[in-house]
Write a protein that binds this DNA or RNA. Structure first.
Lengths: 123, 123
DNA sequence: CGTTACTATGTGTCTTGAGCGTATACTCCT
DNA sequence: AGGAGTATACGCTCAAGACACATAGTAACG
């Protein structure tokens, strides 16, 4: 199936949405549950990006279905909240995130070459 | 109106869609007409991203309406195809592109910190 | 114990925007 | 004249985020 072909090649899954990439980024440091991803994104972006609950959980469902994430049954700490669902990057997820990072790096490089990142200090 | 507030603050227009950012990027080197933007994007990305005509022209219309681009009446070369419509970045458009570039730079930096850009040579 | 705030996951609905096809028409080359 | 390429634009559909809302467990406080 074409589904299989897509899974085989990370490049066919690009570009990722900003939300999806933030989620994958938050999981590069280890597995987390949904709510913790939400807080991690807010922290990393210093509040500039905050995921709405609806956006987050639907994005997680999509990433699971696409095979970029997998759910972990084991809990990092015993006795943690039973409601939590822990997610971790799959090999594919990591590969796709890396491919997306390279794509963005190329865009940022072009922006820098064209003077977009020097001229303006603030905002 | 809130439309005015949005125009005043580039940060409220983020994140840009990948397509929108590519278009702004293509215009940082000077004004171009739609079809030339399409080719410029393909060239910059070495064929990895190709804008469909429908996607491009609707994105251009949106960017015009949002005040990120403006249409130029003067033609860079006399006698060029009369059908062409030339677009150029506005100050707002440049500011938004710069803000988006910084946002992406931050994501790429995080990816690098987490080893996403070193571990894998190929793909 | 009851109340309140926070944690945690999830669905319903609306709107935006990209993908893809198609229409239209002009230009350039042979 | 005919065809490839240039150039803009619309119709339709699907994916995905925004926001509201639902549900329920947990933790702190009195």
């Amino acid at each position: 199936m074409s589904q299989e072909r897509k899974r085989a090649d990370p490049l066919h899954l690009l570009p990722l949405t900003p939300v999806a990439f933030e989620i994958l980024l938050a999981l590069t440091t280890g597995e987390r549950h949904g709510y913790a991803i939400m807080r991690a994104v807010e922290e990393r972006t210093e509040g500039r990006t905050s995921l709405h609950a609806g956006t987050l959980y639907r994005a997680l469902a999509r990433l699971l279905e696409g095979g970029l994430l997998e759910e972990r049954d084991e809990r990092p700490q015993a006795g943690s909240d039973e409601r939590r669902r822990y997610y971790a990057l799959t090999d594919l997820g990591r590969a796709v995130a890396a491919a997306e990072a390279r794509r963005l790096e190329s865009q940022v490089g072009a922006a820098r070459d064209h003077g977009l990142l020097e001229g303006m200090g603030g905002a």
